[in-house]
Write a protein that binds this DNA or RNA. Structure first.
Length: 314
DNA sequence: ATAGGTCAAGCGAGG
DNA sequence: CCTCGCTTGACCTAT
């Protein structure tokens, strides 16, 4: 079985270092008021630091055998509000991003991203669509600056995520607005099954999105429990995997926080800190994005679980 | 230095 | 009608 385990955005060891050591993070940001006061020069300063730290995170990953990483969407604060090329430090930023992308390529790393829930290609409101296209375009541009491939290897993953009590209309909008995206995004976009029964299951994404516009499906194990589309986990993960062509499918894995803390008051969709069960690959080659709060620490735990699992099977 | 309140965006769910 | 949660906590002010 071939697979990579990855984690999202934050490296605990680098982000919360021991005293005296410098914090390494790609998530420096600012609130709106500060952006209005300080404008592009400060955005540029934060971006350059974030972009330089990205390489450090990738190097840390390499040292720890981690080949799969989800980039933060906060790398360039307020990027949708201006042209990145207008940042005073653009050349240095471009260089830092290129270096990070080159490092990833040289070490066979897979880099992906997951823009926020505000991105709604389904919306009947044109201004929502315009903002969504702009935000996705920024993600595509950053990946281009890193020279990441324009394939689903470097996926940009979003949810379909809304129905407006008219799923036909919503799905039609999604497919129609997909065509309005720049090639840097269209070539990389994937969709993920939702975590609410009223939204979109893997099966529905397959029937209504993949078959129409060919966008592959990221299967989320935890979300599937809340929106099965009348499929078993095995059926759904196989269906999702069939949408990826030559590219190894990505899946998301997390466990229930409510179970982990034995606390029924925690919403069942919430993600655990770490893991107690090894992921079931259902016989597939998959790249697994681990969505646990403890990040790379949880990844190491999953490694152990899989190793023990293998030992027991042998 | 640390704690606590606050923070762009779109939705749906729950109170 | 309001708040929370979601990709992913981080920023900012008061103490």
């Amino acid at each position: 079985m071939n697979y990579n385990l990855g984690y999202a955005c934050i490296n605990m060891a680098l982000s919360y270092p021991e005293k005296g050591k410098e914090r390494i993070t790609t998530n420096r940001s600012m609130i709106k008021r500060t952006f209005q006061e300080k404008g592009l020069p400060y955005a540029s300063t934060l971006t350059l630091q974030n972009a330089k730290d990205l390489l450090q995170i990738l190097q840390w990953n390499e040292q720890h055998g981690i080949k799969f990483y989800r980039m933060s969407s906060d790398l360039i604060p307020w990027a949708s509000e201006y042209d990145i090329k207008d940042l005073p430090d653009f050349e240095a930023i471009e260089e830092a991003l290129y270096e990070a992308g080159l490092y990833a390529a040289e070490h066979n790393m897979r880099i992906t991203t997951h823009p926020g829930p505000f991105n709604k290609l389904t919306s009947p409101k044109e201004d929502v669509i315009k903002r969504t296209i702009r935000d996705l375009e920024v993600h595509g541009e950053i990946f281009d600056l890193m020279c990441l491939p324009r394939t689903h290897f470097a996926k940009i993953n979003i949810h379909v995520g809304a129905t407006y009590n008219d799923r036909r209309m919503a799905l039609d909008n999604f497919c129609k607005n997909f065509e309005r995206l720049p090639e840097s995004v269209r070539s990389r976009l994937t969709v993920e099954n939702d975590d609410k029964a009223s939204l979109y299951s893997t099966k529905e994404l397959y029937d209504e999105v993949f078959t129409r516009i060919g966008v592959p499906i990221v299967f989320d194990y935890h979300h599937h429990k809340f929106c099965t589309g009348d499929q078993s986990e095995s059926e759904a993960v196989h269906l999702a995997a069939s949408t990826w062509g030559d590219i190894r499918p990505v899946v998301h894995y997390s466990e229930s926080r409510a179970d982990e803390h034995n606390d029924a008051s925690i919403r069942p969709q919430a993600h655990s800190d770490s893991y107690v069960n090894p992921i079931d690959f259902h016989g597939l080659d998959l790249d697994v994005m681990l969505e646990a709060k403890h990040k790379e620490i949880a990844l190491f735990k999953m490694r152990e679980l899989l190793k023990n699992n293998l030992t027991m099977a042998a």
